[in-house]
Computed example of a mutant assay.
Amino acid sequence: MLHLQPERSMSRTSVSPAAAYSSPQPRPPLPTPSPSSFSAASTRWSSQPPTQTANLSLRFLALVLSFAAALQLAAISPATAKFKKHSNSFCDYPELVYCFTVNIWGFLYAAYQSFKGICDVAHRGIFVSDMVSDYISFIFYQLTGYLVVSASSVAVPVIQHMYNGTSLRKAATVSVCMSFASFLVIAASGVLSGYRLCKRIMW
Rank of each mutant, 00 (worst) to 15 (best):
Q25M: 14
D92C: 06
I201M: 05
Y146G: 10
S167P: 01
S87T: 11
V158R: 01
G165S: 07
P26W: 10
E7I: 15
Q48K: 03
A151D: 02
P6I: 08
L58K: 04
R12F: 12
A155L: 06
R124Q: 14
T80E: 07
Q25A: 15
K84L: 13
V128R: 04
L58H: 02
S14K: 12
S77R: 11
D92I: 01
A41Q: 03
A19H: 02
I126E: 10
Y141P: 00
E7Y: 11
P157Q: 08
K84E: 09
S11V: 03
T101V: 12
V174N: 09
L71P: 00
K116H: 07
R12N: 04
F138S: 13
Q72R: 06
V128F: 12
V191P: 01
S87Q: 06
F60H: 00
L184N: 02
F67W: 12
N55G: 06
S46W: 00
H3S: 08
A70R: 06
K85T: 12
A172F: 07
V154N: 00
N164W: 03
P33N: 05
T32R: 05
D130M: 05
S36Y: 07
S42I: 10
A187E: 04
E95G: 10
E7V: 15
W203L: 12
A188Q: 05
S137Q: 11
F107T: 04
D130L: 08
S47L: 08
Y93P: 02
C91Y: 07
T51D: 13
Y21P: 00
S46K: 01
K199H: 09
A20W: 11
C99G: 00
S39A: 09
T32S: 11
A155N: 02
S34Q: 11
S57Q: 06
I104H: 03
T80H: 09
S153N: 07
L63E: 04
F138K: 01
Y109A: 11
V64C: 12
G165D: 10
P50H: 07
Y112P: 00
P50V: 12
T43L: 12
K199Y: 02
Y109L: 14
P6E: 09
